[in-house]
């Protein structure tokens, strides 16, 4: 790992809170790192272990569930 290593993070965000917060941050012109890739889910209850595993399998360094 080098000092410049930046983990790629897949974020599963609930439509009604975390995703809405991200949206609001956008309208407020706030930044978040481009290494975070947001995926909207109808509810974090929809997130399944397979979503998390598949993300890591396909190259994500971490997954993030927010809701």
């Amino acid at each position: 790992m080098t000092a410049t290593f930046e983990p790629q993070i897949v974020a599963f965000c609930c439509k009604y809170c975390a995703y809405a917060a991200g949206d609001l941050a956008g309208s407020m012109r706030l930044n978040y790192p481009p290494s975070v890739k947001v995926i909207q889910v109808p509810c974090t209850g929809r997130v399944d272990i397979l979503h998390l595993l598949r993300a890591i399998e396909d190259g994500a360094d971490a997954v993030y569930v927010a809701g």
Binding site: I49, L50, L53, R54, I56, E57
Partner: peptide, 16 residues
């Protein structure tokens, strides 16, 4: 099916 998918994915991640 669920356990198959989880084990397969876990094996692939470990070997990758």
């Amino acid at each position: 099916l669920k356990e198959v998918q989880i084990l397969a994915s876990t094996l692939r991640i470990a070997r990758k």
